[in-house]
Simulated scan of single mutants.
Amino acid sequence: MQYKHLGRSGLRVSRLALGTMNFGDATDEATSFQIMEDAVEAGINLFDTADVYGGPQSPDMQQGYGLSEEIIGRWLAQGGGRRDKIVLATKVYQPMGLGPNDKYLSAYKIRKAVEDSLRRLQTDHIDLYQMHHIDRFTPWQEIWQAMEQLVREGKITYVGSSNFAGWQIATAQSAATHRNLMGLVSEQSLYNLTARTIELEVIPALRHHGLGLFPWSPLAGGLLGGVLKKTQEGRRSSPQVRQTIEQLRPQLEAYEALCDEIGEHPADVALAWLLHNPVLTATIVGPRTPEQLATSRRALDVTLSDDILAKLDEIWPGPGGEAPEAYAW
């Protein structure tokens, strides 16, 4: 396994992160346990979850809320040094109930959410506590005061963001600096060959402020995992996915043909393309089975030449570079 510092921090994490959104939903507990065991055995030490993972992420459908954290907690409770082998990351923001203060990032919500996550995870600290989305109403003074208190109490160690814009990252870091805090160390964003918008402003902001990047949906919901071949083999997809396939068919055909040409699986190429970006710390893989986890490790050994990278840019063009040069002088 390869390791890299988490942004500008001294913490080293594996370049593949185990995403656990499927735990308790698409993946049962026994299989989830096996996936976590296999991940540790493979050297993966970054486990990513969220308080809402495990079922429908809707305030009026709470039957799965917290289940992913609970499954991880029961796995950790088996002992054997499991907690010390992983860097545990979870998130706060999403509605965890129907009350007026059951969502967003007020100090009230953050305090309650971290206590609930610690209970479900059966641990006394969270290594990376991530804001699942930007809160457009709560002031940064309140958010950082709450996070600072949790760090002081030893309940969290680092703070990260998710789905932030570049200017919001800059604003958060400015507010943290005024309090003599480290601020954010990482950002989770939608990023893959089909979705490259963050190259405009988010990636430059991460590089400038020293934050690590964790892309979510690195395979674009399976589109970059050889979807055309799987469809030919009889794999069934939802109507929405089939519609997207038809919209992107020329690009998908060119992409899968290029992967065949270089003798690599499309999913491995998609992950390797992400991993070649120096801003990226780790890419999140969310296996539903141990077999899917095992195959994702191949991406670490795939080297993409400048010629192949250029061809990928032709197939999946980005926004034209970083702002403002992408659209101005």
Rank of each mutant, 00 (worst) to 15 (best):
Y3E: 09
H5W: 00
L6Q: 06
G7V: 12
R8M: 07
R8W: 02
S9A: 07
V13K: 01
L18T: 04
L18P: 05
G19R: 08
N22V: 09
D25K: 08
A26M: 13
D28M: 13
T31Q: 06
Q34R: 15
G43L: 08
N45K: 06
N45G: 07
D48G: 13
D51K: 06
G54P: 09
G55T: 04
M61P: 00
Q62S: 01
G66I: 03
S68M: 08
I72Y: 00
G73W: 01
R74M: 06
L76I: 14
L76H: 00
A77I: 01
Q78D: 05
G80K: 02
D84N: 15
K85A: 15
K85P: 06
L88I: 09
K91A: 10
V92I: 14
P95V: 09
M96D: 04
L98M: 06
L98C: 05
N101G: 11
S106M: 02
I110V: 15
I110Q: 03
I110M: 04
I110T: 08
K112F: 08
D116A: 15
L118F: 12
L121Y: 03
L121S: 05
Q122M: 02
T123C: 10
I126D: 01
L128I: 15
L128C: 03
Q130E: 09
H132I: 01
H132Y: 11
T138E: 04
I143K: 09
W144M: 03
Q145I: 00
E148A: 14
Q149A: 15
R152A: 14
V159H: 04
G160M: 05
W167N: 12
Q173R: 15
S174T: 11
A175F: 03
T177H: 09
H178T: 13
S189E: 10
S189T: 12
L190I: 03
A195H: 13
R196F: 10
R196I: 08
T197V: 12
E199W: 14
L200A: 14
L200P: 01
V202E: 10
V202A: 05
P204N: 06
R207A: 11
R207K: 14
H208W: 04
H209L: 14
H209T: 06
G210I: 14
L211F: 12
F214S: 04
W216N: 00
L219E: 02
A220G: 07
A220E: 14
G221D: 05
G221H: 02
G221S: 03
L224A: 04
K229N: 10
K230T: 06
Q232I: 00
E233K: 10
G234F: 08
R236I: 07
P239L: 06
T244L: 12
I245S: 02
I245R: 01
E246L: 09
E246G: 02
P250D: 07
P250C: 13
E256F: 11
A257G: 01
D260W: 05
E261C: 05
G263S: 14
E264F: 03
P266A: 11
A272V: 08
A272N: 10
W273G: 11
W273P: 04
L274F: 02
L275I: 07
N277W: 01
N277Q: 15
P278L: 00
P278Q: 02
V279G: 00
T283Y: 12
P287N: 11
R288D: 06
T289F: 05
E291G: 14
Q292L: 10
A294I: 07
A294Y: 03
T295K: 15
S296Y: 05
S296K: 02
D301M: 00
I308P: 13
G320R: 05
G321T: 12
A326G: 00
Y327M: 09
W329P: 10
